[in-house]
Design a protein around this nucleic acid. Structure first.
Length: 876
DNA sequence: CTGAATGAAAG
DNA sequence: CTTTCATTCAG
């Protein structure tokens, strides 16, 4: 609940849009910050809008749901411009990616402080590393611009214009990243256009891959899926209708228009049936001729395979979820969402890719399932049944999309689910061999196993968000289903897992009891292509029990070869993860929470993560909350977030250590003059060994004090402290301050930071104020501010240094040195406080210097420095 | 709603 | 040049 505190509120309030007058667009941010739960529905709607943006078709859905129908297109485009948030620049991306780390290190630090640190890091960051972020920012921006052709960063003051008509729609627009404009279109079109003919569009999406690397293609597919995913939830109602008809396409539109909810009940059953068949069916479909047309490239095939495997995975996951959910409902939920979304998206994607109109319906079905899933958590029995339904729905969605989208779906699925590196490798090998088909099934198993421990969470998420809106419907549906499927539901409870996961046929046969009419027909065909279906069910069940660690072992009766397929999937998955998928996981880990489960996965990619996780653990409860929110967000946000995350994740995340090192190095380079100290500092900072650090610390501290570089250093130092210092101290680390203190060591890095920050600060307001005060006489206000800042972050000192260096004023340092000695004698820990004061003084001095008043500044600094000392003593 | 950072864009 | 806004979220 709390997770998203602020985020939720706005949306929850009722009218999401209404709440946020400011930004209509933001989907991403809000979602992340907020919890998806409440938003889920809204978000979904938004997504739809976004998706729709290009094609006018979707308007229907929107209209039905939202009111704005007519404007949809316009709104989207126009709104997109206005509403769409401007793409993040490289620095923001960096901040987003590393802020969690900073926060972990400095729980107390508020965002501003964290931002400062991040700025320091950014400054220190090597150009080459920065380049990655800049490139991504550029890419993101390009994609964004494509999506929103006349987007203007600054609305000129006029501000928002459009979105008024449809608040919800406008706001929701996530834009997500729309990494590839095409993809966004496709998804939107798919949603919008139930028509079967959308094929060409699908091709577009595929085409984009050229831009992106092979992996990128996969990512794109996943993105599409994600984007689509949200839509489904909104369209849920539509699905049922389509299911009845058998052909989703034509009906979908009608359904969409007519009403989502009303038909839900019947739909559910159908969806279930479909779901049962879906996993296999998808795979089969993908393999089938239909899927091929779109994708020609080998990558594509891989992606398809992955999707297929994922589909299986998904099912299994779902089945597992219920069980897991009982134990760890919260976590699982979060995790679940992503998967579900993915599924949905997949369905959406399909249409575009292959021209299936069904996607939207499938999505709706998925949504319903998710809803059901939620209840499951409540009661184990119910949960199972629900899960089953979910699976079915999912499958169904897949079925509908089946051929066209299978690949995409798989990709997405893989991303979230995949956690097993091993499986990935195996998959890769299998792929190389050409056995991927068989592998598909296995991968699923693997996935399941992994999910159970770590991934399981994903499914839940979905359920939550959807649940909100859907729950009611769901209940209704459930009842109805009971009528039709009730029989099998009971049996299914046990079977569910197997059914869903496995093959459509099995599901149809067993589960189908009640409602398989159309579905059966659908499922069977699918199954046929996929030999494994029945066996899969069993395998899945086994897998679950076994768990899995691994590699799926053989599971099973059925088939070694299958494993290979799955492994293939895994490989794709892995690649995806490596690029961006990990991000979500990584983010979670960063946040701290569950890292343990997923850590394994991450570890593979991110060796550094380990430290992060460890840190997280120690961190305060806040971490948990954050992590939760993030998880939810990531999962809940779904499309946009996931896509973004993927890309975002692909960006390298640097451990604090790295920055420290860099910072030291940089400082050295930059500040040859003051150099000596810096050198020492650098040593200390870099110094891997804790003991060295301590010693270095003292030295550094002194130096820093003198120079007042501290602020920048602090950040870095903090990081180091976490990694290294913490080791020795951490246990005892009764005082957070210690960590803070440590950072001082690396003050050198601060130089850059200072420079950048200084400029801005000066310009804006603070500096000005400070200057004034300093000039005339120390103005209390300034001092206070500076103090606070320093205490928190200790950054300001750095700027001073810079100035000093540049200007060549060492006078300050001297005074500081004296003070330092005194402090040193007292205790190293005290330093932080001291620094802060010193920093303040320095800052003031800097400003003064700027203005040309040194003498006064020095005096002030001295005074300030003294004060800090006192403080430090008091602390001790 | 503000702010702390950086950067892109627009005035 | 300056202002706006993107992310994040405590205050």
């Amino acid at each position: 609940m709390k997770g998203g505190g602020r985020g939720k509120e706005p949306p929850v309030a009722g009218e999401v849009t209404g709440k946020r007058p400011k930004r209509k667009c933001l989907q991403w941010h809000p979602l992340l910050s907020k919890k998806a739960l409440d938003f889920s529905e809204e978000e979904e709607e938004e997504d739809e809008e976004e998706l729709e943006k290009q094609p006018g078709l979707c308007g229907q859905d929107q209209e039905s749901q939202v009111q704005c129908g007519s404007t949809t297109e316009e709104v989207e485009e126009d709104s997109s411009e206005q509403r769409a948030r401007r793409p993040m620049n490289a620095f923001l991306l960096f901040c987003k990616r590393h802020r969690s780390l900073v926060r972990q290190e400095h729980p107390r630090l508020d965002n501003r402080g964290a931002t400062k640190i991040l700025a320091d890091w950014w400054a220190v960051l090597e150009p080459k590393e920065k380049q990655k972020y800049t490139d991504m920012a550029k890419e993101y921006k390009d994609a964004f611009m494509k999506a929103n052709p006349g987007y203007k960063w600054c609305p000129t003051t006029s501000k928002p214009v459009k979105s008024p008509s449809c608040q919800p729609v406008g706001n929701p627009r996530k834009k997500v990243w729309s990494f590839s404009s095409n993809s966004s279109k496709d998804s939107s079109t798919a949603k919008k256009v139930p028509k079967t003919d959308s094929m060409p569009q699908l091709n577009f999406a595929m085409a984009d891959p050229t831009k992106m690397g092979g992996l990128s293609m996969l990512l794109l597919a996943g993105e599409h899926a994600l984007t689509n995913r949200e839509i489904p939830s909104s369209t849920k109602p539509s699905l049922p209708d389509t299911a009845n008809k058998g052909n989703s396409c034509p009906r979908d539109e009608e359904e969409m228009l007519s009403g989502k909810i009303p038909n839900t009940v019947p739909d559910l059953t159908e969806s279930r049936v479909k779901c049962a068949s879906s996993p296999l069916a998808e795979s089969s479909l993908s393999a089938a001729p239909e899927g091929k047309p779109c994708r020609q490239s080998a990558l594509f095939q891989l992606a398809e395979m992955c999707l297929a495997s994922e589909a299986g995975k998904m099912d299994t996951t779902v089945s597992q979820q219920p069980e897991d959910s009982s134990s760890t409902a919260s976590l699982q939920q979060t995790t679940v969402k992503p998967e579900i979304k993915e599924e949905i998206q997949d369905s959406d994607d399909c249409p575009p890719a292959s021209h299936t109109s069904a996607p939207s319906p499938s999505l709706s079905s998925v949504t319903s399932t998710s809803t059901e899933a939620i209840p499951t958590q409540l009661s184990s029995q119910n949960t199972r049944v629900k899960n089953k339904s979910k699976k079915k729905e999912v499958a169904k969605s897949n079925d509908t999309d089946e051929i066209p989208c299978s690949a995409k779906k798989i990709l997405k699925k893989c991303n979230p689910a995949e956690s097993n590196v091993d499986s990935v490798f195996s998959t890769i090998e299998a792929v190389a061999k050409g056995a991927w088909k068989d592998t598909e099934e296995k991968p699923k198993k693997k996935i399941q196993s992994s999910p159970s421990s770590g991934n399981s969470g994903v499914p839940k998420k979905k359920s939550k968000p959807k649940v909100k809106a859907l729950v009611q419907d769901k209940e209704e549906k459930m009842e109805e289903d009971g009528g039709q499927c009730g029989q099998h539901s009971a049996s299914e409870v046990e079977m569910t897992e197997e059914m869903c996961d496995v093959s459509p046929k099995t599901q149809a046969e067993e589960a189908g009891i009640g409602s398989t009419d159309l579905q059966d027909s659908m499922a069977e065909p699918h199954l046929a292509p996929c030999s494994p279906s029945p066996s899969k069910l069993k395998e899945d069940a086994k897998v679950k029990e076994r768990s899995s660690e691994g590699t799926c072992d053989s599971n099973t009766e059925s088939h070694g070869s299958r494993k290979s397929e799955r492994s293939c999937k895994g490989a794709l998955y892995k690649t995806l993860v490596s690029e961006g998928m990990l991000t979500s996981l990584r983010a979670n880990i960063d946040r701290g929470k569950r890292g343990a489960l997923r850590a394994s996965d991450h570890d593979a990619n991110w060796s550094d993560d380990s430290w992060t996780v460890s840190q997280i653990g120690p961190n305060n409860p806040k971490k948990l909350k954050k992590s939760k929110s993030k998880e939810e967000c990531s999962q809940g946000l779904g499309k946009l977030e996931e896509e973004f995350e993927r890309k975002f994740n692909s960006l390298p995340q640097y451990s604090p250590m790295t920055f420290d090192k860099k910072g030291t190095a940089v400082t050295k380079k930059k500040k040859p003059d003051s150099s000596i100290v810096q050198e020492e500092v650098s040593k200390a900072g870099k110094g891997p060994s804790p003991s060295q650090k301590k010693t270095s610390f003292h030295k550094i501290v002194r130096k820093h004090k003198h120079k007042k570089e501290r602020p920048g250093a602090v950040d870095k130092a903090v990081v180091q402290s976490d990694s290294t210092t913490l080791d020795s101290h951490s246990k005892a680390k009764s005082c957070a301050p210690v960590a803070i203190m440590c950072p001082d060591v690396q003050g050198s890095a601060s130089m850059e930071m200072l420079v950048g920050s200084q400029k801005r600060k000066a310009r804006k307001t603070k500096i000005t104020h400070l200057v004034r005060t300093a000039d005339g006489s120390v103005s209390p206000v300034e001092e206070d501010k500076t103090r606070d800042l320093n205490q928190e972050e200790d950054k300001k000192p750095l700027p001073q240094q810079n100035l000093c260096n540049e200007k060549g004023c060492y006078s300050n340092p001297r005074a500081e040195e004296e003070e330092e000695e005194a402090e040193r004698s007292t205790a190293p820990q005290e330093l932080p406080a001291f620094f802060s004061l010193a920093a303040l003084a320095e800052v003031a001095a800097m400003e003064n210097v700027h203005r040309g008043q040194r003498g006064l500044v020095e005096n002030q600094k001295k005074e300030l420095a003294q004060t800090p000392v006192l403080i430090s003593c008091a602390d001790q």
